[in-house]
Design a protein around this nucleic acid. Structure first.
Length: 269
DNA sequence: ATGCCTCAGTAACTGAGA
């Protein structure tokens, strides 16, 4: 079972790239972030035509998450929860569309809890947006603890907007003041691992040096100035079944690409 | 360097991203 996360940076702008990635790599589950579309504008039929059933949670202009499930390969999906119950950083803003939790069941009857997240960026630091990021991470940790207590096989995938270690970034100096690698951000991420969740990419690349994001600006892609912020966290049962991981770097270099690359893990059945 | 590029919304800009 291949599970993947992909921050697509706009589903309207990315639809051709996204569809070709689905057809070329055929993940069982694809978690999308930065859909940037209202629910009524989500192009569900585009995915159904490819044999994927989508579940989506959008909002106007920003954020937005979705889970695509390969029905052609016999998987089915049921939504469990949307949102974490936390308001955005602006006055009277309400909740942003950043969290979507589903149960995915295969032909063999085995169900996997899939949690798709788009964690707040938190810049500029310090400030209300950074405070919001930390509060969101605490809400996430509480929800992950509740899922843990259910003792279901679970994977939390998405754009965490956290650079976990110094060897997860091309230059510590260049990013030192960024919200993505502040000690508070890293400590909150480390607490998730301390709770028992396994960082799939890190497990298979213990020395780091694997990037999932390259900025559009300043020739970052050409210079390989990237970092790792898209993560796949696994519950113990799924960690035991982890066979391989990867980043589809080649897709980052294509025309009209997202600034993130698809990131995936294969679990033994 | 409050820059660099890209996307969405709305109509030449602004906000957000990371």
């Amino acid at each position: 079972m291949k599970i993947a996360t992909y921050n697509i940076n706009g589903i309207k702008a990315r639809l051709p790239r996204l569809k070709e990635w689905l057809e070329e790599t055929r993940p069982a589950v694809a978690c999308l972030q930065e859909v940037k579309s209202q629910d009524k504008d989500f192009p569900a039929s585009e995915f159904e035509e490819l044999g994927y059933q989508p579940v989506w949670h959008g909002q106007k202009a920003f954020n937005g998450v979705a889970v695509l499930v390969d029905t052609k390969a016999g998987y089915s999906v049921e939504e469990v929860q949307r949102g974490l119950g936390i308001d955005g950083p602006k006055e009277d803003e309400g909740e942003q569309a950043r969290y979507l939790e589903c149960d995915v069941t295969g032909e063999n009857g085995a169900t996997t809890r899939i949690v798709c997240i788009y964690l707040p960026n938190g810049n500029p630091h310090p400030g209300p947006k950074f405070d919001y990021k930390l509060a969101w991470m605490e809400k996430l940790r509480a929800r992950m603890a509740a899922i843990w207590a259910e003792e279901v096989p679970a994977a939390v995938l998405g754009d965490f907007n956290v650079i976990p270690e110094d060897d997860d970034v091309f230059s510590v100096k260049a990013m030192a003041s960024d919200a993505l690698m502040q000690p508070e951000s890293r400590e909150a991420y480390a607490r998730l691992l301390g709770d028992g969740w396994t960082d799939a990419l890190r497990t298979h690349n213990p020395r780091g040096g694997v990037w999932t994001y390259w900025d559009y600006q300043a020739g970052a892609w050409q210079k390989d100035h990237g970092f790792r912020i898209d993560h796949i966290l696994l519950s113990p049962e799924l960690a035991d079944r982890l066979a391989s991981v990867g980043v589809d770097r080649e897709h980052r270099g294509r025309e009209k690409a997202s600034d993130h690359a698809p990131t995936w893990a294969v679990l033994r059945d």
